[in-house]
Design a protein around this nucleic acid. Structure first.
Length: 204
DNA sequence: AAAACGGGGGC
DNA sequence: GCCCCAGTTTT
């Protein structure tokens, strides 16, 4: 068992699960798009309103982004821009992808508001692909613990793909998000209660 | 490589 | 009042 598998095992045993449990591609995609630069508790409330008002891609594609959607998703950051992106992405999925959320990184990142991180969240969470979504938590923690050493998130992803076992990759991001929010925080990390402090290069 | 987008919550 | 947050896009 290498270090990453041991770190993952201990964190899963010690931490609560990530609150997002949806697997439907539409819900995974819209949640991931809403979550950009927004805390997940806020995103969960906003996403629930979005799904109630627009239960599927077709209904979202018919919506008016400025008048309707922007008001429904108020609360998340960049909500006006996200409203436009959500509706335009839904329309592209209807017109170009046969109404199904794409299951490859190129088609996903061709959607407005979808970058590599969101694409990898969709691929791993909705489609079970063995990919790692690198966000600020994964990037910070991986470097802080000495698993990788780079300022470039894309290089972090490539390095992690070499050291994270395939069966762990899809759940790596949500595990690190919970870890990063509660213990391995950006500032004032709580190393005194960290389950993997003995494996960390920068424990306090 | 850096700036812009941006409302909400913690401290 | 200041800083950070499940990033993406444009310059």
């Amino acid at each position: 068992m290498n270090d990453v598998a041991e770190i993952y095992r201990r964190l899963k045993a010690a931490l609560p699960p990530h609150p997002f449990t949806e697997r439907d591609p539409y819900r995974v995609l819209t949640f991931a798009m809403l979550s950009t630069r927004t805390r997940d508790e806020v995103t969960l409330e906003v996403a629930a309103r979005l799904w109630e008002r627009y239960p599927d891609i077709a209904s979202l594609a018919r919506a008016d982004p400025e008048e309707e959607v922007a008001s429904v998703i108020r609360g998340v950051g960049f909500h006006r821009q996200k409203a436009r992106n959500l509706v335009e992405a839904a329309r592209l999925i209807m017109e170009v992808h046969g109404g199904r959320v794409p299951d490859n990184v190129d088609d996903l990142t061709s959607l407005p508001g979808v970058g590599r991180k969101v694409a990898n969240v969709v691929l791993s969470t909705a489609f079970g692909r063995s990919v790692i979504a690198v966000d600020t938590h994964v990037h910070r923690i991986s470097n802080r613990m000495g698993l990788v050493s780079t300022d470039n998130p894309r290089e972090t992803e490539e390095a992690l793909m070499r050291i994270v076992p395939p069966e762990i990759r899809a759940d790596f991001n949500p595990t690190m998000v919970v870890f990063g929010r509660t213990i391995c925080r950006p500032t004032r990390p709580r190393c005194h209660i960290c389950p993997v402090a003995d494996l960390c290069e920068r424990r306090l």
